[in-house]
């Protein structure tokens, strides 16, 4: 298939279904891999976690900026680990590594390639991104045809 001469060509690999309860939100934005991670022990607690692109600065805190007790030195806490794992599921390891600028050695995990250090960043921007993301689900559907979507076929079944 000649991707240069086709109107319809797969550019973004289809997202694989993943369970959302543990990591409801992941995005590559604002120069970070960032997202929202559920606490493993307390159903009422939610963490906002991020890894900086290039800098590999790690941040993990509750929404009111209380720091995560598991994140001390330069090793990602289990929330950051979960964030990275789900990001790989959602975007593929290549895209995550390219965005974070991680040099991945053959057969090693992305975590092994992080030159990580603790670098707290505010949770509020991630939280507002999550709300913006959810705003899509509040928009009404439409019964007027959107012919432009012919360029975007649903392609999952063959994968």
């Amino acid at each position: 298939m000649d991707v240069e001469r086709r109107s319809v060509a797969p550019i973004i690999p289809p997202v694989k279904p993943r369970k959302l309860a543990k990591v409801p939100f992941v995005e590559l934005a604002d120069g970070r891999l960032q997202g929202v991670v559920s606490s493993g022990s307390d159903v009422e607690r939610v963490y906002v976690s991020s890894i900086g692109a290039g800098s590999h600065g790690l941040s993990c805190s509750t929404n009111n900026n209380r720091p995560c007790g598991g994140l001390r030195g330069s090793y990602p806490c289990k929330h950051l680990q979960a964030l990275l794992d789900e990001a790989v599921l959602q975007y593929g390891a290549d895209r995550v590594a390219r965005y974070l600028r991680i040099d991945v050695e053959e057969g090693r995990s992305l975590t092994a390639g992080l030159r990580a250090h603790h670098e707290p960043s505010p949770a509020a921007t991630v939280f507002s991104s999550f709300l913006r993301h959810l705003a899509y689900l509040e928009l009404p559907d439409t019964t007027a045809p959107v012919p432009e979507l012919h360029w975007f076929p649903s392609v999952g079944a063959a994968h």
């Binding site: 993301h133 899509y136 559907d141």
Partner: peptide, 24 residues
């Protein structure tokens, strides 16, 4: 003829779950 329904969604809603967006 054709008839269409289209709904906004987020990237993590895929597969058979998309039908629920058309519950109306």
């Amino acid at each position: 003829v054709r008839t269409s329904v289209a709904a906004p969604k987020v990237d993590t809603i895929v597969g058979p779950a998309v039908w629920r967006l058309f519950a109306a």
